[in-house]
């Protein structure tokens, strides 16, 4: 039995993250992580006719790059697992339809990167695959069009709002090979604390992240201090503050080793992104571009990566429903400093 607690499983050997690739839009490229991304576009349309097609192009270009960085060909990949925010996940499906690889489409809202990596690692650990390509994408303009208002509309954003990241992040998971390893997976439960404000997603998702952290620490008997880095997906500054407070009440101290990808990806002041970055791509590209190299070099030896999602639709929120949150946790062990093999 690989199950070590109510919500946590330990993989028998650990699944290697062979490669990680990130492709982002111009605003992300101008942000503090700009230099780390593999591919950057100057135009949010990415040469396409619509925002939706642009998102799919981010997916295709980046997925191909992830495979290439792993020194593999698409026929070596057994499954693709990915998802996005667009209706019926067309951002993903139109992006990967020409890759000719068996596909599971996922929807975990902005937690999709965590969900895809979790399930991909389980597929490999279960003996069903040797290589799995997992990823997640989002596009600011496509998301605004679907969830808020048309872009040219002159509106103001409240200070609690977040900015959807444009881009795609993808990793190749493998049974064997050198690289950081996914060793444990804690799967989140849906938590709804009654927040209905679509302009305060961080507050809506924070309880799910806090619940996941608590479950993870209880299942493993660890504390936050056992990790070099803990990163939630897209809670932004307000959500992070709430998680710290909620966990504090449970007796766990989250210090500065805990950050949120939504805080890292933009310079909120200079780039006017208010509470931070959000969207499926937020945790996906931040992990691939910023955390993965640190895991590879041994700067981070053990990290807890927790993409977070708000499981709502425009219909549910217009009908007055509150926003249920979800979070998916992965323990990833980096390479040891100076070790020849990883």
């Amino acid at each position: 039995m690989k199950r070590i607690g109510k919500q946590t499983v330990r993989l028998s050997e650990g699944v290697t993250i062979l490669s990680a690739a990130s492709t982002v839009g111009p605003k992300e490229a101008e942000g503090p992580l700009g230099k780390y991304f593999d591919q950057k576009t100057e135009d949010s349309f990415f040469g396409e006719k619509s925002w939706e097609l642009a998102e799919s192009k981010f997916v295709e270009k980046n997925m191909r790059l992830a495979v290439q960085k792993a020194n593999l060909k698409s026929e070596d990949i057994d499954y693709i697992l990915c998802g996005d925010l667009l209706n019926q996940c067309t951002g993903s499906t139109f992006g990967i339809k020409n890759l000719d690889i068996p596909f599971f489409g996922l929807f975990g809202a902005c937690s999709t990167m965590g969900e895809s990596m979790s399930l991909g690692a389980m597929l490999i650990d279960g003996g069903f695959a040797n290589h799995v390509l997992t990823g997640a994408s989002s596009h600011f303009c496509a998301a605004e069009k679907q969830f808020r208002f048309p872009l040219p509309l002159g509106t103001q954003r409240p200070p609690t709002s977040t900015w959807t990241v444009t881009g795609d992040g993808a990793v190749v998971l493998a049974r064997k090979g050198d690289g950081p390893k996914i060793v444990e997976i804690t799967t989140g439960k849906i938590v709804d604390m009654g927040v209905a404000d679509v302009n305060n997603m961080g507050a809506a998702m924070a309880p799910a992240a806090a619940a996941l952290l608590k479950a993870h620490f209880e299942d493993t008997g660890r504390t936050p201090q056992d990790y070099d880095a803990i990163a939630t997906g897209d809670l932004g500054t307000i959500g992070r503050e709430l998680v710290v407070e909620l966990l504090g009440k449970e007796g766990y101290l989250l210090d500065n080793r805990y950050t949120d990808c939504g805080i890292e990806i933009f310079d909120a002041e200079k780039q006017d992104t208010h509470a931070g970055g959000s969207g499926c791509a937020c945790s996906a590209v931040t992990f691939c571009a910023y955390f993965y190299p640190k895991l590879l070099s041994g700067k981070i030896e053990k990290m807890l990566f927790i993409p977070t999602g708000a499981l709502m639709s425009t219909t549910s929120s217009q009908q007055g429903q509150s926003i249920p949150g979800i979070a998916h946790g992965l323990v990833i062990e980096g390479c040891r400093k100076g070790a020849e093999e990883c």
Partner: peptide
């Protein structure tokens, strides 16, 4: 929790 959110969210 709503009170916590209110305190944490800038107006």
């Amino acid at each position: 929790y709503a009170e916590m959110v209110k305190k944490a969210s800038p107006n």
